[in-house]
Structures are given as structure tokens and as C-alpha cells.
Design a protein around this nucleic acid. Sequence first.
DNA 1: TACAAGATACTTGTATGCAAGATATATGAA
DNA 2: TTCATATATCTTGCATACAAGTATCTTGTA
Lengths: 143, 143
Amino acid sequence: MDRIEECISFQLGKAYQQITRRAREALAMHGITPVQYATLCVLWERDGLSCADLCARLILDSATMTGIVDRLETAGCVERRRGPDGDRRLSRVYLTASGNTLREPLQAAMDAMNREIDAHLGQAAGAVRRALTAIGASSREAT
Amino acid sequence: MDRIEECISFQLGKAYQQITRRAREALAMHGITPVQYATLCVLWERDGLSCADLCARLILDSATMTGIVDRLETAGCVERRRGPDGDRRLSRVYLTASGNTLREPLQAAMDAMNREIDAHLGQAAGAVRRALTAIGASSREAT
DNA sequence: TACAAGATACTTGTATGCAAGATATATGAA
DNA sequence: TTCATATATCTTGCATACAAGTATCTTGTA
């Protein structure tokens, strides 16, 4: 394990870097970043989630989530609402009309990219997906 | 591809996030970050490289490299030297005694982690490594 | 030689990502 | 009721990561 290029942690990081770069380019014309897309994705599936819900789903720190929602709100894609009735600590995140309009083009772009990666992997795609999911889940419950 | 968890780009990102977290914990006692370790790794193999050499090897932006070398220099692991003889644009990065002392414990910690990941992947390790390397290399030359 | 073009490192601005802590709110026990 | 504790979000500080631009130096060419 002398050369850094032979470390699986390095290989994983560079693969991630490359995919992120391509996603950034694919989404740039809409002014959305990859992480912002992931956040919108969860909201398209179920609107009005709290920041804590989004953090759990996207496996992100609450400090990171605050900034992401801040920028999505500034961009006019979502808005925070703190219900005067419910728990006033919670700030629920709701899609705006603009946020919903982005769904079709963004999902089309990202689906195309993900399909391309799968095609690139060929028969190994299933094994790679299982391996990545296993690594991602490993010892997260042990924390 | 409705749920973000099913996108390979998301799975890749979360696997990377998990590995980075473990590497950060393994290196924290030495005050070194994962990227700083990768930089030292390259220098242990060949000392006195320029920033451009390090950028090419680690596939990083020169702006990122400046900050990493800054912090390694502040930590006393390396020092920059601009030869009065050679190309004065170049600033070569040299390991200090302290930087060399870190080699054994850091490589031991990271080798153990990488072996653990490989063991976790089992028979799929080879295919996963090849897939990650292929993704990492894809269309980088096309830029 | 003198200048255009390229290379090298650095700076600035923005966006994650996490650690640590602050603030406001809710909830349970005494 | 009242206070300790827990929760949800936000703030601050630091470390990547990249885009865009700057300053300095080198080199090829007229």
C-alpha cells in the first residue's frame, strides 16, 4: 500500500470527486448544486419536512443543512414556515412554485447521468451499488 | 430513480463521507487530516515536489493545494523552498524531520483502515476497485 | 533584445462538511 | 408550578474544493 493511488479510500474519493464535478456541470444551468438537488429530491417526494427530517434522510449535519436551506430559500426554490400551532422549534421546509418547476429538467439531467454511470459499470453495477451502500452504512449505527 | 438513496451518485457520496469520517478519526490524534495525509504520502515517496506536481498527483486544484501546504507548513511537517537557482516560480515542498517521523504511525493507521475496507468488501473488492478507478478516470482526459 | 504567451503559485469568493457551542422551545419530574 | 433536561435550529470557526482572477517568472519568437 505504498502509493496513495492504490488505497481504496483515495480511489473512492476521486470517483466521488469526478461524479460530483459532472453533476455540478449538469445542474449549473439551473443554478442548483448537487447537494441542493438532493435536498429538492427529498422534498419532491414529501413536501414540508423539517430540517431534522432532511438531515436524517440526507445524512448531513444540521449546521450544513442550515446553509443549504438558506441558499435554496434565497434562490426562491423553498421557503421556511414555523407553524404558530405546532412545535415552534421546528421550521418546516416547503417547495415554492419555482421549486416544483425545476423537478422535471433536474431529474431528467440527473437520471441521465446516473444511468450513464450504471451503463459504464456494466455487469459490475449491482455489486458496486451493494458495496457502496454497505460502506456507507458501516458503523454509522455504532456511533 | 425516484428516491435519492437509489441514485449511484448519492450512494458513492455517502460511502466517501463514511470513509472520510473514519480516516479523520484515525488521524486526529496526530493532528493530520485525510487530505493532508495523502499529501504527505506522496512526499514520503518522493520529497521536494512542486505544488503543481502535488496537484497533478492528488488531482486537486492549485487553490486547494496552497491551503493544504499552508497548514502542513504551520504544523511543522513540511517547508517550502524557492530555489534561488532554479525556476523562481516554483516553490518546492520538503518534508521536515517531524514530517518524516509521522510516516510510520500514520501509514500503519491508514493501512489498517484500507485493509479493513477490503476485507469488508470480500470477493467484490477487486471489481469495486476497478469500477472506482474507472469512474475516477472517466472523461478527466476529455476536459 | 523586447515582447507576447505560457506556466506557477497565490488570492478571493462561494459552497459544502463537521465540531462545538448558543438560543429558543418543549417536556417530564419533583 | 418550577426547574432540569432534551430537542430543533442556528452560529461560529476551520478545512476542503473549485471558479475566476492576480502577480511573478520563464520561454519562444519576431
